[in-house]
């Protein structure tokens, strides 16, 4: 059945006049939700925790621990980068998995999915709006981590021009540009996982199951990426370029991983987006 055909002409016109109404309401619902706020707050706690621990113990890292940890005492701005390195393997996919897994299954579990589909939006557009919410969260999460990290770092440690991996230093404008690129890179890297989560979410009416499946897939992909015996598979894993954001901290910037990551994530988006559409458009909505 197609909900489009059933829509009265008047409401169809209003949808045509305000094509982004659904996206707007979806974003508002997502970011005003207490769970989303709590997850972003939890992500912001990570850099605070790192900074406070380094400040209290006062010890350098002697080259051990996550990347950039040793630079924190010298320059507080590195707290943001260290926190990103810490968050990327687990916390970011975890929170994104919750958001993506909840998209369709959450509405189905609450019994609100059929009401959403009564509105003259069409299933494809609802799916797009849901995915836009996931993408917005994928961008918001790294931005929150980096900003919280740089803020707490600036409070607790001295702030200097940032030393890049290549040994050159960059000024405030350069740092701002690179940080913005970096947040976009992390957001881009999470798009594939978001599409997988969206697809899994159309398969079930139990949101917890979709969330868990998404997070488990992210973990499994990272484990496969660690095994050198499978190196032919690595360029195809959606987690493969997750830590490639280091290339943005070189001078001159290396764009290879940005391009490869974009291509890979676009491929995952195409495959799982199409799967999600096929499943959602042919599904009988019972709740």
């Amino acid at each position: 059945m197609s909900p489009d055909e059933a829509a009265p002409a008047a409401t169809r016109r209003s949808a045509a006049l305000r094509p982004f109404a659904l996206f707007g309401s979806e974003l508002a619902t997502l970011f005003l939700r207490r769970r989303t706020i709590a997850m972003l707050a939890a992500l912001a706690v990570v850099p605070v925790l790192i900074a406070v621990v380094v400040r209290v113990t006062g010890a350098g890292s002697n080259g051990r621990g996550p990347a950039f940890l040793g630079s924190i005492t010298d320059n507080g701005l590195f707290v943001g980068f260290t926190a990103l390195v810490v968050c990327i393997p687990l916390f970011l996919p975890l929170t994104l998995g919750v958001v993506a897994g909840d998209t369709i299954a959450g509405e189905a579990a609450l019994g609100t999915l059929r009401y959403l589909l009564v509105a003259p939006a069409g299933r494809a557009r609802l799916l797009l709006a849901k995915y836009a919410g996931v993408a917005a969260f994928a961008l918001a999460a790294p931005v929150v981590i980096v900003l919280a990290g740089m803020g707490i770092g600036a409070l607790l440690f001295p702030v200097r021009p940032v030393t890049l991996l290549s040994g050159d230093t960059t000024d405030a404008a350069g740092l701002l540009a690179r940080t913005a690129l970096l947040a976009c890179y992390v957001a881009l890297s999470l798009l594939g996982l978001g599409a997988i989560g969206l697809f899994v979410s159309t398969l079930t009416t139990v949101p917890v199951g979709a969330m868990a499946a998404t997070v488990v897939l992210a973990g499994a992909s990272q484990i496969l990426d660690q095994l050198p015996q499978l190196d032919w598979l690595h360029p195809w894993l959606f987690t493969h370029y997750w830590l490639g954001f280091g290339d943005l901290l070189r001078d001159p910037i290396v764009w290879d991983s940005y391009g490869q990551d974009a291509l890979l994530q676009a491929a995952y988006l195409a495959v799982f987006g199409a799967l999600a559409y096929a499943r959602f458009a042919t599904k009988d909505i019972l709740s």
Binding site: P235, W236, L263, L264, A266, A267, Y268, A270, V271, G273, A274, L275, Y277, A278, R279, A281, T282
Partner: peptide, 20 residues
């Protein structure tokens, strides 16, 4: 129409792999 809706999902992997 059911089959048509699954069509993108069948084509997308081939296109994605080809592009990569």
């Amino acid at each position: 129409t059911r089959l048509m809706r699954w069509l993108p999902a069948l084509v997308a992997p081939a296109v994605a792999a080809g592009a990569m």
